[in-house]
Computed example of a mutant assay.
Amino acid sequence: MRIFKSDFFTLPLSALIALAIAVPVAGCKRIPDEDANRPETALAYPPASRPVSELAGNAWSTETARDKRGEAEEIMKAAGLAPGMTVADIGAGEGYYTVRLAERVGEDGRVLAQDIDEDAIKRLAERVARDELDNVSIKLGAPDDPRLPVDSFDRIFLVHMYHEVREPYAFLSRLRPSIRRDQDGGSYDGGEVIVVDVDRPFAEHGISPKQLFCEFEAVGYQLIGYMERPELGGYFARFRPVGKSPLPGKIVPCELLE
Score class of each variant (00 low, 15 high):
residue 1 M to N: 05
residue 2 R to V: 01
residue 15 A to V: 11
residue 15 A to T: 13
residue 18 A to H: 04
residue 20 A to S: 11
residue 22 A to S: 08
residue 24 P to S: 08
residue 26 A to F: 15
residue 31 I to P: 04
residue 37 N to Y: 14
residue 37 N to P: 01
residue 44 A to R: 12
residue 51 P to V: 02
residue 54 E to K: 10
residue 56 A to P: 03
residue 58 N to A: 07
residue 58 N to W: 15
residue 59 A to H: 11
residue 60 W to S: 13
residue 60 W to E: 07
residue 69 R to A: 13
residue 71 E to D: 08
residue 72 A to V: 00
residue 77 K to A: 11
residue 82 A to D: 13
residue 90 I to E: 14
residue 96 Y to D: 00
residue 101 L to T: 02
residue 102 A to Q: 01
residue 103 E to V: 00
residue 103 E to A: 02
residue 112 L to R: 15
residue 113 A to E: 03
residue 119 D to C: 05
residue 122 K to I: 02
residue 132 E to C: 08
residue 135 N to T: 04
residue 136 V to L: 04
residue 141 G to F: 08
residue 156 I to W: 00
residue 157 F to H: 05
residue 161 M to P: 07
residue 162 Y to H: 07
residue 166 R to V: 06
residue 170 A to V: 07
residue 171 F to Y: 12
residue 184 D to G: 05
residue 185 G to P: 06
residue 186 G to L: 12
residue 196 V to E: 15
residue 198 V to R: 15
residue 198 V to N: 08
residue 200 R to K: 07
residue 206 G to C: 06
residue 214 C to R: 03
residue 215 E to T: 07
residue 225 G to D: 11
residue 226 Y to D: 06
residue 227 M to K: 13
residue 230 P to K: 02
residue 234 G to M: 10
residue 234 G to V: 09
residue 238 R to T: 10
residue 241 P to C: 11
residue 243 G to D: 10
residue 244 K to P: 10
residue 244 K to H: 07
residue 246 P to T: 09
residue 248 P to W: 01
residue 251 I to K: 15
residue 253 P to G: 04
residue 254 C to P: 03
residue 255 E to S: 08
residue 258 E to N: 12
